[in-house]
Amino acid sequence: MALLQATDIRKAFGGIQALDSCSITVERGSITGLIGPNGSGKTTLFNVITGYERSDTGKVEFNGLDISRYTPNRIFGMGMGRTFQLTRIFPRLTVTENMHVAIRRKGLASLLGRWSASSEHARALQLLEFVGLTHLRDTPAGSLSYGQRKLLELAFILIAEPQMVLLDEPAGGINPTLIDQLGERIRELNRQGVTFLIVEHNMEFIMGLCNRVMVMHRGAKLAEGAPEAVRANPAVLEAYLGD
């Protein structure tokens, strides 16, 4: 049984059919790429899956559970984290404080306790080390560079130990060294059992990282398969170059 299964998703914004009977499947333990020309519905699909938008029709199943009508916080609590195309961090909180927002809080006592004295603090610092932001831990997140923000966003999602992470253009607008580092981190997490679904325009990055690639076009899935096969698919080339 696939970890994530979206079936026949439709979503219209006024007259624009952003998603038109879109169905995707993400296998447990995979790194799946999601590519497609601008406006093909990739981000909308992410929003529908993570509860930020409600689909008009269709069903999203995560771990066999129908999550189509769940709110974002509930979906996150079930183990699915996401990043945003334009990173969304908390600019006026420090980097460490950002890390603590996503920590699961069980019970009132833990909620009212001091975050800096919590048992998860060590783990927060460990994850900052993992993404290489330890030296910036007391800096307001708003003064981080774009690439550092992407790393921070990834780190604070990881603190909740998600089964699945959706990354929206993780390599967009960041420098090549950082892209390599990011790819390395994703592979390492994948080895630990985290499933990834990645939207990306950087073909080199996605072809090198993913074991499966899906192509979206006009709100529906156009092609799917191993990276090389997808790259050679004439329909895909048509979608990118034609029209």
Binding site: R88, F90, F156
Partner: peptide, 28 residues
């Protein structure tokens, strides 16, 4: 007390980006 608690951190997170906080499991 609120300012130094996780609860307060959630309030501050809501101030900075409510949608993001919701997506991180905060019951906004």
């Amino acid at each position: 007390f609120v300012r130094h608690s996780k609860y307060g951190l959630e309030l501050l997170a809501i101030r900075d980006d409510e949608g993001r906080a919701l997506g991180l499991g905060v019951h906004t």
